[in-house]
């Protein structure tokens, strides 16, 4: 079974080699005449003020945290969903109810986020 994953690794290697070739091609054909003006940061003709790497809005962190919570939940759903037919034959309604309880617990967290205003973007 592990053999099936070899083409996937090869595909990534091919992609890297191909992009290496394309980017090298541009250095073969393209000119290399750098000057300080050309190498400065592009800000529509304005002199850049300070660096760009400053603090940004906390909302992005909240989105990242929410993503982790919900994404892990969905990842847990996958093995359950793939085997659902067999599991229903084995255990009937129980297996569905079990997962619904799991979803409801997360929905409670979701409602808490909603009430807290974590999803407000203004």
């Amino acid at each position: 079974m592990i053999e099936q994953y070899i083409p996937l690794i090869l595909a990534i290697l091919i992609a890297l080699l191909f992009s290496l070739f394309l980017l090298k091609a541009s250095s073969w054909f393209g000119p290399q005449r750098p000057n300080p003006e050309k190498l400065s940061t592009y800000e529509s003709g304005m002199e850049p003020v300070r660096t760009a790497r400053e603090r940004f809005s906390v909302k992005f962190y909240i989105v990242a945290i929410m993503f982790i919570i919900f994404d892990i939940e969905v990842v847990f759903l996958y093995p359950w969903a793939v085997n659902l037919k067999n599991l229903i034959d084995l255990m009937g309604f129980f297996i569905i109810a079990e997962m619904f309880i799991f979803i409801i617990i997360l929905l409670a967290g979701y409602l808490y986020l909603l009430k807290k205003g974590a999803l407000k973007w203004d």
Partner: peptide
């Protein structure tokens, strides 16, 4: 076209980014 890497850029990351994006798509 000339391949410009801005002077204030983080060079390794700047050069690697197109590879990462293309490899992800092609994989």
């Amino acid at each position: 076209k000339e391949d410009i890497v801005p002077a204030s850029a983080d060079k390794p990351l700047f050069v690697m980014a197109p590879y990462v994006i293309f490899a992800g798509t092609f994989a």
